[in-house]
Amino acid sequence: MALLLYFVLGLSTILAQTTILRLDGILYDLLIPLVVFLSLNFPKRKGILVVVILGLIMDILSGAIFGLYLSIYFWIFLSVKGLSKCFDVGDTIFQSVLIGVCVLGQHFMFCAPCKGAQLLTVRVVPVLLQTVFAMLTGPGILMLLEALHIRLQAAIRRLERNRGIAIR
């Protein structure tokens, strides 16, 4: 149920990013903090399902090579999962750097298929701006998601308890 909510949240983000928000300026891909959050808070099997579906949707809507978004989110999910075993992922500075690196990595993946002269046209300033903005806002988004997660867990537990009483 919780995963469904995060899927809806991701879908809403995609809708916003493909209609009202333009990711040309300072705004970065807001699904990245969500993927990081899912990686930190859900078991591999469950979390990856949502991540893959969101990646697929992004791939379908985007003009990118099919599977590029899917791969990016997939690897972010797995990398964060791996890092969470070695580092204190609750640290704000660590989260900030983590999201910044993810955004930078995503841009790197996007410009990777560029050929020779095309690489010269890669706009460095927006990429750097987005990375800095992601580093500044990413931990905040993660905090919001975590607060939502705690409330959601409590609500689910309450619901389950009530259901148990009703069955008895």
């Binding site: 995609i14 990013q17 493909t18 209609t19 333009r22 990711l23 040309d24 891909d29 992004m58 809507l61 985007s62 003009g63 990118a64 978004y69 841009h107 996007f110 410009c111 927006p126």
Partner: peptide, 12 residues
């Protein structure tokens, strides 16, 4: 709909 990334230029 617009492309979700700033790198690719497609519309729906």
């Amino acid at each position: 709909g617009l492309d979700p990334s700033g790198w690719f230029k497609t519309v729906i």
